[in-house]
Amino acid sequence: MKAFLDDRQRAHDPKHFMANGAQQPNPEVPRRVEILAEGARAAGCHFETPADAGLGPIAAVHTAEYITFLRNIYTRWRRIEGAGEEVIPNIHPANRTDGYPKSAVGQAGWHQADTACPIAEHTYEAAYWSAQSAVAGADHLIGGGRMAYALSRPPGHHAFEALAGGFCFFNNSGIAAERLRAAGLRPAIVDVDVHHGNGTQGMFYGRGDVLTVSIHADPARFYPFFWGHAQERGEGAGLGANLNLPLARGTDDAGYMAALGTALERCDSFGADVIVVALGLDASIDDPFQGLAVTQEGFTRIGAALAATGRGLLFVQEGGYVSDTLGANLTCALKGAMGG
């Protein structure tokens, strides 16, 4: 399988995030790249460095104002006397129809949804090349390829069009789907991360030309809390083009595969001819977030079920954090898709 990764994606090295009122080590570490690349190679992937497609594919789904913020905020932040080493907001607007401030502190609160997306010196560069990896994967399918893997890190599915969150800055899966749609394809995004793809949902919620489906731990008591409930179906032109399949904490392989079957039935009804798989591996029984209980065999079955649709598949890396089985879970998913 063709795979894409740029070494500059390793440069983003966040130190902290806040959870439950406490500062904790950030689990979205550069070491993920090493583990995931090894897992992909074990599945038979051959990595290429993505071409630079420019800002166009990113700006197709993210606002110019937001891109400007990400490019410049770290430099501006370092001018603040006594500021921390990473950009972490301490105030947020009640809603984003409120006034847009000039202050770096105020803009951080506007464009960062939570305290789990710290921005450091190399964050923009790494996020840019993470997005380019996803674009290269989309271009491979546009050119006639049937399957590709983008090792996109930092991940992307919690990023809205003008909002970072949950370790995510540019929405790589959304960028890839829009690239495919612009080329005349009809894409579905199937998100198998343990967390709901709230940024992806928000990005396409009013549109009917990209199907968004997310299988995830029930957000009633799990991040991102405010999105991912079953009644969220889209709005306007997008009504019926969003499907959420929340699962009880600890759901195993059997329960997960039943939900995936429902997701793929919706892809059939939508008439999708290509699927962007937002490939979170944190549904694993071994993942530190402990939301669901998918085994290595389960990941093999997930990959096989996706391949059995006969559609073009672009796997875009989302979550999945350091554990003894992280690399093996990726190997299983990709081998399952390749029939191994």
Rank of each mutant, 00 (worst) to 15 (best):
N20C: 03
E297M: 12
L247P: 07
Q112L: 12
D252M: 05
R207Q: 13
G84S: 14
P89H: 02
T251G: 00
G44N: 09
A116N: 02
H12M: 01
C45N: 09
P27R: 15
P118L: 10
R32I: 05
L5C: 12
G319L: 03
N72V: 11
L260I: 08
L334N: 02
E81C: 07
A150C: 09
A43H: 06
A138M: 02
V294P: 00
A108D: 13
E161F: 03
G280Q: 02
I73K: 15
A293K: 05
A94I: 06
D6Y: 04
H122F: 15
L292V: 00
F170I: 15
I73H: 15
S103P: 10
Y66D: 02
D13R: 13
N90E: 10
L245F: 05
Q24E: 11
G298P: 12
G271F: 11
A127M: 10
L334W: 05
A259P: 13
W110L: 09
F289D: 00
A127F: 04
A183Y: 11
S103F: 08
E65Y: 13
T325S: 15
A237Q: 11
P93K: 05
V210P: 02
A254E: 14
L334A: 04
Y128N: 11
R8Y: 13
G310A: 02
A22Y: 15
A220G: 13
T123E: 01
D13L: 08
V29N: 06
E38L: 06
A278G: 10
H111L: 13
T295C: 09
N26F: 06
F167S: 00
S269W: 10
T68P: 00
L314T: 14
R311M: 07
G238R: 10
L330K: 01
K102S: 14
Q231P: 07
A188Q: 08
N171I: 04
D218V: 08
L5N: 13
T331K: 00
G206T: 07
I67N: 04
L151K: 01
S284H: 14
A293P: 12
T200L: 04
A237S: 12
Y100A: 07
D6H: 15
G144C: 02
A83I: 03
H229F: 11
G199R: 06
R10C: 11
G56K: 10
I275H: 04
V190N: 01
F299G: 08
L151G: 00
I119V: 05
Q317D: 05
Q23A: 03
A220E: 06
A159K: 02
E86P: 06
I175H: 03
V29E: 12
H157I: 02
D6S: 14
A159E: 00
D52L: 12
Y128K: 11
F4T: 05
I80R: 12
E161P: 01
I119H: 10
Q107E: 15
A308V: 06
S130M: 00
L185E: 09
I91N: 14
S130R: 03
R266I: 15
E34C: 03
Q9N: 08
A177P: 01
G99L: 14
R71Y: 09
R10T: 10
A134G: 04
A177R: 08
P50N: 14
P246E: 11
G240R: 11
A182M: 13
D252N: 06
G56S: 13
D52Q: 14
V29I: 02
R181A: 09
H111Y: 15
E81I: 05
I189T: 04
A305K: 07
Y66G: 02
I35A: 04
G255K: 01
G340D: 09
G261W: 05
